[in-house]
Design a protein around this nucleic acid. Sequence first.
DNA 1: AGGAATTTGTGCGTATGTATC
DNA 2: AGATACATACGCACAAATTCC
Lengths: 233, 233
Amino acid sequence: MPYSRRADLPKYIQLSELLIRDIDTGRLLDGERLPPERQMAATLGTSIGTLRKALANLEQKGLLERVQGSGNYVRKPGKAAGLYAMFRLELPEGGGLPTADVITIGLCAKPDDLPAFGASVRATRIRRLRYLNDIAIAVEEIWLDASAGTLGADMLGDSLYQTYLEVLGFWITRAEDRVGISALPDWTPAPFGKPGTPCGYIERFSWSAGPIPIEFSRTWFDTTKSIYVQRLK
Amino acid sequence: MPYSRRADLPKYIQLSELLIRDIDTGRLLDGERLPPERQMAATLGTSIGTLRKALANLEQKGLLERVQGSGNYVRKPGKAAGLYAMFRLELPEGGGLPTADVITIGLCAKPDDLPAFGASVRATRIRRLRYLNDIAIAVEEIWLDASAGTLGADMLGDSLYQTYLEVLGFWITRAEDRVGISALPDWTPAPFGKPGTPCGYIERFSWSAGPIPIEFSRTWFDTTKSIYVQRLK
DNA sequence: AGGAATTTGTGCGTATGTATC
DNA sequence: AGATACATACGCACAAATTCC
Protein backbone atom coordinates (compact mmCIF):
# COMPACT_ATOMS: atom_id res chain seq x y z
CA MET A 1 0.00 0.00 0.00
CA PRO A 2 2.13 2.84 -1.25
CA TYR A 3 -0.26 5.56 -0.21
CA SER A 4 -3.90 5.60 0.75
CA ARG A 5 -6.67 7.98 -0.15
CA ARG A 6 -9.97 8.13 1.63
CA ALA A 7 -11.57 10.89 -0.36
CA ASP A 8 -12.44 11.31 -4.02
CA LEU A 9 -10.50 14.49 -4.50
CA PRO A 10 -6.75 14.48 -5.05
CA LYS A 11 -4.75 15.45 -2.03
CA TYR A 12 -3.36 18.63 -3.58
CA ILE A 13 -6.92 19.84 -4.22
CA GLN A 14 -7.88 19.02 -0.64
CA LEU A 15 -4.92 21.00 0.62
CA SER A 16 -5.80 23.89 -1.63
CA GLU A 17 -9.42 23.84 -0.43
CA LEU A 18 -8.27 23.69 3.16
CA LEU A 19 -6.19 26.82 2.72
CA ILE A 20 -8.93 28.61 0.80
CA ARG A 21 -11.29 27.99 3.69
CA ASP A 22 -8.73 29.34 6.14
CA ILE A 23 -8.37 32.44 4.05
CA ASP A 24 -12.11 32.93 3.56
CA THR A 25 -12.87 32.55 7.25
CA GLY A 26 -10.12 34.90 8.31
CA ARG A 27 -7.93 32.31 10.01
CA LEU A 28 -5.30 33.43 7.54
CA LEU A 29 -5.18 37.18 7.12
CA ASP A 30 -4.22 39.28 4.15
CA GLY A 31 -0.48 39.82 4.01
CA GLU A 32 0.26 37.00 6.43
CA ARG A 33 3.24 34.84 5.68
CA LEU A 34 2.79 31.08 5.66
CA PRO A 35 5.30 28.80 7.38
CA PRO A 36 8.15 27.46 5.23
CA GLU A 37 7.04 24.83 2.76
CA ARG A 38 8.99 21.99 4.34
CA GLN A 39 7.53 22.76 7.73
CA MET A 40 4.01 23.06 6.34
CA ALA A 41 4.38 19.80 4.46
CA ALA A 42 5.43 18.04 7.64
CA THR A 43 2.57 19.56 9.64
CA LEU A 44 -0.01 18.68 7.00
CA GLY A 45 1.37 15.20 6.56
CA THR A 46 2.22 15.50 2.91
CA SER A 47 5.20 15.76 0.65
CA ILE A 48 6.69 19.04 -0.40
CA GLY A 49 5.87 18.42 -4.05
CA THR A 50 2.19 17.90 -3.38
CA LEU A 51 2.04 20.95 -1.14
CA ARG A 52 3.72 23.02 -3.81
CA LYS A 53 1.09 21.92 -6.29
CA ALA A 54 -1.60 23.15 -3.92
CA LEU A 55 0.21 26.45 -3.37
CA ALA A 56 0.58 26.92 -7.12
CA ASN A 57 -3.16 26.43 -7.35
CA LEU A 58 -3.75 29.18 -4.81
CA GLU A 59 -1.38 31.49 -6.60
CA GLN A 60 -3.28 30.92 -9.82
CA LYS A 61 -6.47 31.89 -8.02
CA GLY A 62 -4.82 35.13 -6.91
CA LEU A 63 -5.07 34.21 -3.23
CA LEU A 64 -1.35 33.76 -2.65
CA GLU A 65 1.85 35.47 -3.66
CA ARG A 66 4.93 33.30 -3.79
CA VAL A 67 8.29 35.01 -3.48
CA GLN A 68 11.44 33.03 -4.03
CA GLY A 69 13.84 33.34 -1.17
CA SER A 70 11.27 35.01 1.01
CA GLY A 71 8.01 33.14 1.55
CA ASN A 72 4.38 32.62 0.62
CA TYR A 73 2.08 35.54 1.39
CA VAL A 74 -1.70 35.52 1.64
CA ARG A 75 -3.35 37.90 -0.81
CA LYS A 76 -7.04 38.32 -0.17
CA PRO A 77 -8.50 40.64 -2.75
CA GLY A 78 -11.44 42.64 -1.42
CA LYS A 79 -14.48 40.95 -2.82
CA ALA A 80 -17.34 43.23 -1.84
CA ALA A 81 -16.59 45.89 -4.41
CA GLY A 82 -17.06 45.04 -8.03
CA LEU A 83 -18.66 41.70 -7.48
CA TYR A 84 -21.65 42.58 -9.56
CA ALA A 85 -19.81 45.14 -11.64
CA MET A 86 -20.82 43.58 -14.92
CA PHE A 87 -24.41 42.84 -14.16
CA ARG A 88 -26.46 44.98 -16.52
CA LEU A 89 -29.92 44.75 -15.01
CA GLU A 90 -30.87 47.34 -12.41
CA LEU A 91 -33.84 48.43 -10.39
CA PRO A 92 -34.89 52.00 -11.14
CA GLU A 93 -34.28 52.96 -7.53
CA GLY A 94 -30.81 51.50 -7.77
CA GLY A 95 -29.22 48.89 -5.57
CA GLY A 96 -31.05 45.63 -5.20
CA LEU A 97 -29.57 42.38 -3.95
CA PRO A 98 -28.80 40.04 -6.83
CA THR A 99 -29.44 36.35 -6.28
CA ALA A 100 -30.03 33.41 -8.56
CA ASP A 101 -31.64 29.98 -8.68
CA VAL A 102 -29.98 27.35 -10.78
CA ILE A 103 -32.44 25.59 -13.08
CA THR A 104 -30.09 23.17 -14.80
CA ILE A 105 -26.35 22.74 -15.08
CA GLY A 106 -24.29 20.28 -17.06
CA LEU A 107 -21.49 19.67 -19.52
CA CYS A 108 -22.57 19.15 -23.12
CA ALA A 109 -21.46 19.63 -26.70
CA LYS A 110 -21.91 23.12 -28.08
CA PRO A 111 -24.92 23.16 -30.39
CA ASP A 112 -24.39 24.34 -33.95
CA ASP A 113 -26.38 27.52 -33.50
CA LEU A 114 -23.99 28.82 -30.87
CA PRO A 115 -21.54 31.47 -32.07
CA ALA A 116 -17.88 30.56 -32.00
CA PHE A 117 -16.03 31.07 -28.71
CA GLY A 118 -13.49 29.20 -26.59
CA ALA A 119 -11.17 26.41 -27.58
CA SER A 120 -13.20 23.28 -26.87
CA VAL A 121 -16.12 21.62 -28.61
CA ARG A 122 -17.86 21.22 -25.27
CA ALA A 123 -19.06 23.65 -22.65
CA THR A 124 -20.82 23.81 -19.31
CA ARG A 125 -24.36 25.05 -19.78
CA ILE A 126 -25.97 26.83 -16.86
CA ARG A 127 -29.55 28.01 -16.84
CA ARG A 128 -30.59 30.33 -14.05
CA LEU A 129 -33.45 32.42 -12.84
CA ARG A 130 -32.20 35.75 -11.58
CA TYR A 131 -33.63 37.98 -8.89
CA LEU A 132 -33.15 41.50 -7.63
CA ASN A 133 -34.57 41.93 -4.13
CA ASP A 134 -36.51 38.68 -4.58
CA ILE A 135 -38.16 39.87 -7.78
CA ALA A 136 -37.58 37.45 -10.66
CA ILE A 137 -36.25 39.67 -13.40
CA ALA A 138 -34.49 37.46 -15.93
CA VAL A 139 -33.61 34.00 -17.11
CA GLU A 140 -30.18 33.36 -18.47
CA GLU A 141 -28.30 30.65 -20.27
CA ILE A 142 -24.54 30.64 -19.82
CA TRP A 143 -22.08 28.61 -21.84
CA LEU A 144 -18.66 28.29 -20.23
CA ASP A 145 -16.05 26.77 -22.51
CA ALA A 146 -14.83 23.38 -21.33
CA SER A 147 -11.22 24.54 -21.53
CA ALA A 148 -11.91 26.75 -18.52
CA GLY A 149 -12.78 23.78 -16.35
CA THR A 150 -16.04 22.25 -15.22
CA LEU A 151 -18.49 23.32 -12.58
CA GLY A 152 -20.94 21.29 -10.51
CA ALA A 153 -24.22 22.47 -9.07
CA ASP A 154 -22.78 22.48 -5.56
CA MET A 155 -20.03 24.90 -6.50
CA LEU A 156 -22.26 27.71 -7.69
CA GLY A 157 -22.67 30.89 -5.70
CA ASP A 158 -24.94 33.78 -6.51
CA SER A 159 -22.11 35.45 -8.39
CA LEU A 160 -20.87 33.30 -11.22
CA TYR A 161 -17.84 35.49 -11.76
CA GLN A 162 -16.84 35.00 -8.15
CA THR A 163 -17.33 31.27 -8.61
CA TYR A 164 -15.07 31.36 -11.64
CA LEU A 165 -12.37 32.98 -9.54
CA GLU A 166 -12.62 30.72 -6.53
CA VAL A 167 -13.27 27.41 -8.21
CA LEU A 168 -11.62 27.72 -11.59
CA GLY A 169 -9.03 30.36 -10.86
CA PHE A 170 -9.69 33.06 -13.41
CA TRP A 171 -11.44 36.40 -13.51
CA ILE A 172 -13.60 37.84 -16.26
CA THR A 173 -11.84 40.97 -17.39
CA ARG A 174 -13.86 42.08 -20.37
CA ALA A 175 -17.34 41.57 -21.76
CA GLU A 176 -19.13 42.71 -24.85
CA ASP A 177 -22.92 42.88 -24.97
CA ARG A 178 -25.50 43.19 -27.69
CA VAL A 179 -29.07 44.07 -26.81
CA GLY A 180 -32.20 43.26 -28.75
CA ILE A 181 -35.69 41.82 -28.64
CA SER A 182 -36.29 38.09 -28.53
CA ALA A 183 -38.79 35.57 -27.22
CA LEU A 184 -38.58 33.71 -23.93
CA PRO A 185 -37.03 30.26 -24.46
CA ASP A 186 -39.07 27.14 -24.03
CA TRP A 187 -37.26 26.15 -20.85
CA THR A 188 -38.32 29.30 -19.00
CA PRO A 189 -39.57 28.27 -15.56
CA ALA A 190 -43.16 28.88 -14.62
CA PRO A 191 -42.95 31.73 -12.13
CA PHE A 192 -41.14 33.99 -14.55
CA GLY A 193 -42.93 34.35 -17.86
CA LYS A 194 -44.61 32.43 -20.63
CA PRO A 195 -42.27 30.85 -23.17
CA GLY A 196 -42.56 32.47 -26.57
CA THR A 197 -43.63 35.89 -25.40
CA PRO A 198 -41.45 38.83 -26.50
CA CYS A 199 -38.91 40.21 -24.07
CA GLY A 200 -35.60 42.03 -23.87
CA TYR A 201 -32.48 40.09 -24.74
CA ILE A 202 -28.75 40.42 -24.08
CA GLU A 203 -26.05 38.41 -25.78
CA ARG A 204 -22.64 38.51 -24.20
CA PHE A 205 -19.10 37.38 -24.94
CA SER A 206 -16.71 37.38 -21.97
CA TRP A 207 -12.93 37.25 -21.84
CA SER A 208 -10.63 36.24 -19.03
CA ALA A 209 -7.12 36.53 -20.43
CA GLY A 210 -5.92 36.17 -23.96
CA PRO A 211 -7.55 37.02 -27.22
CA ILE A 212 -10.51 34.66 -27.38
CA PRO A 213 -13.74 34.81 -25.38
CA ILE A 214 -14.19 32.02 -22.88
CA GLU A 215 -17.88 32.41 -22.12
CA PHE A 216 -21.01 33.13 -24.07
CA SER A 217 -24.33 33.94 -22.45
CA ARG A 218 -27.87 34.92 -23.28
CA THR A 219 -30.13 36.79 -20.91
CA TRP A 220 -33.85 37.27 -21.41
CA PHE A 221 -35.48 39.90 -19.19
CA ASP A 222 -39.09 40.86 -18.65
CA THR A 223 -39.60 44.42 -19.86
CA THR A 224 -42.94 44.68 -18.10
CA LYS A 225 -41.24 44.76 -14.75
CA SER A 226 -39.63 47.81 -13.25
CA ILE A 227 -36.10 47.17 -14.30
CA TYR A 228 -33.86 48.65 -16.91
CA VAL A 229 -30.74 47.75 -18.72
CA GLN A 230 -27.62 49.71 -17.99
CA ARG A 231 -26.43 51.84 -20.84
CA LEU A 232 -23.88 49.84 -22.75
CA LYS A 233 -20.65 51.59 -23.46
CA MET B 1 29.46 43.93 -22.85
CA PRO B 2 25.93 45.21 -23.12
CA TYR B 3 24.39 42.63 -25.44
CA SER B 4 26.11 39.47 -24.27
CA ARG B 5 23.63 38.60 -21.53
CA ARG B 6 21.93 35.44 -22.70
CA ALA B 7 18.43 34.59 -21.73
CA ASP B 8 18.54 31.53 -19.51
CA LEU B 9 14.91 30.56 -19.27
CA PRO B 10 13.90 27.48 -17.26
CA LYS B 11 13.83 24.35 -19.33
CA TYR B 12 10.10 23.82 -18.93
CA ILE B 13 9.47 27.28 -20.36
CA GLN B 14 11.80 26.60 -23.25
CA LEU B 15 9.93 23.38 -23.98
CA SER B 16 6.61 25.14 -23.78
CA GLU B 17 7.75 27.88 -26.13
CA LEU B 18 9.19 25.34 -28.51
CA LEU B 19 5.85 23.57 -28.74
CA ILE B 20 3.88 26.81 -29.04
CA ARG B 21 6.06 27.71 -31.94
CA ASP B 22 5.48 24.36 -33.60
CA ILE B 23 1.76 24.85 -33.17
CA ASP B 24 1.74 28.42 -34.43
CA THR B 25 3.77 27.60 -37.49
CA GLY B 26 1.60 24.62 -38.38
CA ARG B 27 4.23 21.99 -37.71
CA LEU B 28 1.72 20.62 -35.23
CA LEU B 29 -1.83 20.68 -36.51
CA ASP B 30 -5.10 21.20 -34.71
CA GLY B 31 -6.43 17.95 -33.30
CA GLU B 32 -3.10 16.18 -33.67
CA ARG B 33 -2.07 13.84 -30.90
CA LEU B 34 1.36 14.26 -29.40
CA PRO B 35 3.58 11.23 -28.78
CA PRO B 36 3.34 9.64 -25.31
CA GLU B 37 4.92 11.75 -22.63
CA ARG B 38 7.69 9.29 -21.80
CA GLN B 39 8.66 9.06 -25.43
CA MET B 40 8.55 12.81 -25.89
CA ALA B 41 10.66 13.35 -22.79
CA ALA B 42 13.29 10.98 -24.12
CA THR B 43 13.30 12.62 -27.55
CA LEU B 44 13.57 16.10 -26.10
CA GLY B 45 16.25 15.05 -23.65
CA THR B 46 14.35 15.94 -20.52
CA SER B 47 12.62 14.29 -17.64
CA ILE B 48 8.95 13.46 -17.68
CA GLY B 49 8.21 15.82 -14.82
CA THR B 50 9.70 18.80 -16.59
CA LEU B 51 7.90 17.95 -19.80
CA ARG B 52 4.63 17.63 -17.92
CA LYS B 53 5.14 21.09 -16.47
CA ALA B 54 5.54 22.44 -19.98
CA LEU B 55 2.44 20.60 -21.17
CA ALA B 56 0.44 21.95 -18.22
CA ASN B 57 1.56 25.38 -19.31
CA LEU B 58 0.23 24.77 -22.81
CA GLU B 59 -3.05 23.48 -21.46
CA GLN B 60 -3.44 26.62 -19.39
CA LYS B 61 -2.97 28.65 -22.55
CA GLY B 62 -5.74 26.66 -24.23
CA LEU B 63 -3.39 25.23 -26.84
CA LEU B 64 -3.50 21.67 -25.59
CA GLU B 65 -6.13 19.30 -24.28
CA ARG B 66 -4.83 16.60 -21.99
CA VAL B 67 -6.93 13.47 -21.60
CA GLN B 68 -5.98 10.88 -19.03
CA GLY B 69 -5.61 7.46 -20.52
CA SER B 70 -5.72 8.80 -24.03
CA GLY B 71 -3.18 11.46 -24.92
CA ASN B 72 -2.33 15.09 -25.43
CA TYR B 73 -4.17 16.81 -28.26
CA VAL B 74 -3.29 20.07 -29.96
CA ARG B 75 -6.03 22.68 -29.75
CA LYS B 76 -5.37 25.64 -31.96
CA PRO B 77 -7.95 28.32 -31.39
CA GLY B 78 -8.53 30.35 -34.53
CA LYS B 79 -5.83 32.97 -34.34
CA ALA B 80 -2.47 31.90 -33.07
CA ALA B 81 -2.39 32.70 -29.39
CA GLY B 82 1.20 31.82 -28.67
CA LEU B 83 4.02 33.96 -27.49
CA TYR B 84 5.74 34.22 -30.81
CA ALA B 85 2.63 34.15 -32.93
CA MET B 86 3.67 36.59 -35.60
CA PHE B 87 7.39 36.14 -35.68
CA ARG B 88 8.29 35.44 -39.28
CA LEU B 89 11.87 34.25 -39.01
CA GLU B 90 12.53 30.53 -38.82
CA LEU B 91 15.36 28.08 -38.69
CA PRO B 92 15.26 25.66 -41.63
CA GLU B 93 15.13 22.71 -39.26
CA GLY B 94 12.18 24.26 -37.43
CA GLY B 95 11.84 24.92 -33.75
CA GLY B 96 14.33 27.27 -32.23
CA LEU B 97 13.93 29.20 -29.00
CA PRO B 98 13.31 32.88 -29.73
CA THR B 99 14.82 35.38 -27.33
CA ALA B 100 15.76 39.03 -27.53
CA ASP B 101 18.12 41.57 -26.01
CA VAL B 102 16.91 45.13 -25.72
CA ILE B 103 19.43 47.61 -27.08
CA THR B 104 17.57 50.84 -26.39
CA ILE B 105 14.05 51.79 -25.35
CA GLY B 106 12.45 55.20 -24.91
CA LEU B 107 9.61 57.55 -25.74
CA CYS B 108 10.35 60.04 -28.52
CA ALA B 109 8.74 62.04 -31.30
CA LYS B 110 8.09 60.16 -34.50
CA PRO B 111 10.67 61.17 -37.09
CA ASP B 112 9.46 62.53 -40.41
CA ASP B 113 10.60 59.56 -42.44
CA LEU B 114 8.31 57.24 -40.50
CA PRO B 115 5.12 56.22 -42.29
CA ALA B 116 1.84 57.38 -40.76
CA PHE B 117 0.35 55.15 -38.05
CA GLY B 118 -1.35 55.59 -34.68
CA ALA B 119 -3.00 58.67 -33.23
CA SER B 120 -0.14 60.36 -31.42
CA VAL B 121 2.89 62.35 -32.58
CA ARG B 122 5.05 60.37 -30.21
CA ALA B 123 5.87 56.71 -29.84
CA THR B 124 7.93 54.31 -27.79
CA ARG B 125 10.94 53.19 -29.79
CA ILE B 126 12.41 49.79 -28.99
CA ARG B 127 15.53 48.46 -30.62
CA ARG B 128 16.31 44.79 -30.10
CA LEU B 129 18.69 42.08 -31.13
CA ARG B 130 16.84 38.85 -31.77
CA TYR B 131 18.03 35.28 -31.40
CA LEU B 132 16.92 31.81 -32.35
CA ASN B 133 18.71 29.15 -30.31
CA ASP B 134 21.30 31.74 -29.26
CA ILE B 135 22.08 32.63 -32.86
CA ALA B 136 21.71 36.36 -33.50
CA ILE B 137 19.49 36.49 -36.55
CA ALA B 138 17.98 39.95 -36.73
CA VAL B 139 17.86 43.49 -35.40
CA GLU B 140 14.56 45.25 -35.16
CA GLU B 141 13.19 48.69 -34.46
CA ILE B 142 9.66 48.87 -33.12
CA TRP B 143 7.56 52.01 -32.85
CA LEU B 144 4.58 51.66 -30.52
CA ASP B 145 2.21 54.60 -30.74
CA ALA B 146 2.07 56.63 -27.52
CA SER B 147 -1.71 56.32 -27.42
CA ALA B 148 -1.27 52.67 -26.50
CA GLY B 149 0.59 53.49 -23.31
CA THR B 150 4.27 53.53 -22.42
CA LEU B 151 6.69 50.75 -21.64
CA GLY B 152 9.81 50.74 -19.51
CA ALA B 153 12.87 48.57 -19.98
CA ASP B 154 11.99 46.54 -16.90
CA MET B 155 8.61 45.55 -18.30
CA LEU B 156 9.88 43.86 -21.43
CA GLY B 157 9.79 40.11 -21.86
CA ASP B 158 11.08 38.14 -24.80
CA SER B 159 7.69 38.38 -26.45
CA LEU B 160 6.57 41.94 -27.04
CA TYR B 161 3.03 40.89 -27.90
CA GLN B 162 2.74 39.11 -24.58
CA THR B 163 4.07 42.25 -22.89
CA TYR B 164 1.45 44.33 -24.65
CA LEU B 165 -1.26 42.08 -23.26
CA GLU B 166 0.09 41.90 -19.73
CA VAL B 167 1.25 45.46 -19.25
CA LEU B 168 -0.92 47.52 -21.57
CA GLY B 169 -3.97 45.29 -21.82
CA PHE B 170 -4.41 44.84 -25.54
CA TRP B 171 -3.64 42.16 -28.05
CA ILE B 172 -2.25 42.48 -31.57
CA THR B 173 -4.91 41.02 -33.80
CA ARG B 174 -3.63 41.74 -37.29
CA ALA B 175 -0.31 42.48 -38.96
CA GLU B 176 0.73 43.26 -42.48
CA ASP B 177 4.27 42.75 -43.67
CA ARG B 178 6.29 43.89 -46.66
CA VAL B 179 9.58 42.24 -47.46
CA GLY B 180 12.52 43.68 -49.35
CA ILE B 181 16.25 44.36 -49.35
CA SER B 182 17.78 47.12 -47.28
CA ALA B 183 21.00 47.97 -45.48
CA LEU B 184 21.76 47.36 -41.82
CA PRO B 185 21.08 50.53 -39.80
CA ASP B 186 23.91 52.46 -38.22
CA TRP B 187 22.88 51.44 -34.71
CA THR B 188 23.36 47.75 -35.43
CA PRO B 189 25.30 46.22 -32.50
CA ALA B 190 28.72 44.78 -33.12
CA PRO B 191 28.13 41.02 -32.76
CA PHE B 192 25.46 41.02 -35.43
CA GLY B 193 26.61 42.59 -38.69
CA LYS B 194 28.34 45.60 -40.19
CA PRO B 195 26.16 48.69 -40.58
CA GLY B 196 25.54 49.56 -44.22
CA THR B 197 25.81 46.04 -45.59
CA PRO B 198 22.81 44.69 -47.54
CA CYS B 199 20.38 42.38 -45.77
CA GLY B 200 16.78 41.21 -45.76
CA TYR B 201 14.18 43.63 -44.49
CA ILE B 202 10.60 43.39 -43.16
CA GLU B 203 8.31 46.36 -42.61
CA ARG B 204 5.24 45.72 -40.51
CA PHE B 205 2.07 47.50 -39.51
CA SER B 206 0.16 45.98 -36.56
CA TRP B 207 -3.40 46.53 -35.42
CA SER B 208 -4.98 45.83 -32.05
CA ALA B 209 -8.54 47.08 -32.38
CA GLY B 210 -9.93 49.78 -34.59
CA PRO B 211 -9.09 50.87 -38.11
CA ILE B 212 -5.61 52.34 -37.70
CA PRO B 213 -2.40 50.47 -36.94
CA ILE B 214 -0.96 50.99 -33.50
CA GLU B 215 2.53 49.73 -34.13
CA PHE B 216 5.12 50.00 -36.87
CA SER B 217 8.28 47.93 -36.98
CA ARG B 218 11.30 47.29 -39.11
CA THR B 219 13.31 44.08 -39.00
CA TRP B 220 16.66 43.58 -40.65
CA PHE B 221 17.86 39.98 -40.92
CA ASP B 222 21.13 38.48 -42.04
CA THR B 223 20.52 36.43 -45.17
CA THR B 224 23.90 34.74 -44.90
CA LYS B 225 22.73 32.76 -41.90
CA SER B 226 20.60 29.67 -42.13
CA ILE B 227 17.22 31.23 -41.56
CA TYR B 228 14.30 31.93 -43.75
CA VAL B 229 11.26 34.14 -43.72
CA GLN B 230 7.89 32.49 -43.47
CA ARG B 231 5.70 32.89 -46.47
CA LEU B 232 3.65 36.01 -45.92
CA LYS B 233 -0.04 35.52 -46.40
C1' DA C 1 -18.39 -8.35 -22.45
C1' DG C 2 -14.15 -8.28 -20.61
C1' DG C 3 -9.35 -8.17 -19.81
C1' DA C 4 -4.79 -6.53 -21.23
C1' DA C 5 -2.09 -2.80 -22.85
C1' DT C 6 -1.41 2.01 -23.18
C1' DT C 7 -1.36 6.67 -21.51
C1' DT C 8 -1.99 10.39 -18.44
C1' DG C 9 -2.69 11.75 -13.31
C1' DT C 10 -1.11 11.69 -8.52
C1' DG C 11 2.19 11.35 -4.84
C1' DC C 12 6.72 10.99 -2.91
C1' DG C 13 11.72 11.80 -2.45
C1' DT C 14 16.04 14.03 -3.45
C1' DA C 15 19.59 17.03 -5.25
C1' DT C 16 20.82 21.44 -6.83
C1' DG C 17 20.10 26.36 -8.25
C1' DT C 18 18.83 31.07 -7.03
C1' DA C 19 16.69 34.93 -4.68
C1' DT C 20 16.06 37.04 -0.21
C1' DC C 21 17.21 38.31 4.27
C1' DA D 1 29.19 35.94 3.70
C1' DG D 2 26.04 32.74 5.63
C1' DA D 3 21.52 31.05 6.44
C1' DT D 4 16.95 30.58 4.88
C1' DA D 5 13.37 29.68 1.56
C1' DC D 6 11.37 29.03 -2.82
C1' DA D 7 12.33 27.22 -7.87
C1' DT D 8 13.84 23.81 -10.94
C1' DA D 9 14.87 19.20 -12.44
C1' DC D 10 15.06 14.30 -12.21
C1' DG D 11 13.25 9.73 -11.20
C1' DC D 12 10.11 6.15 -9.53
C1' DA D 13 5.81 3.69 -8.13
C1' DC D 14 1.13 3.27 -8.40
C1' DA D 15 -3.84 4.96 -9.67
C1' DA D 16 -7.24 5.92 -13.02
C1' DA D 17 -9.01 6.66 -17.57
C1' DT D 18 -9.00 5.23 -22.18
C1' DT D 19 -8.27 2.18 -25.99
C1' DC D 20 -7.77 -2.08 -28.23
C1' DC D 21 -8.07 -6.89 -28.93
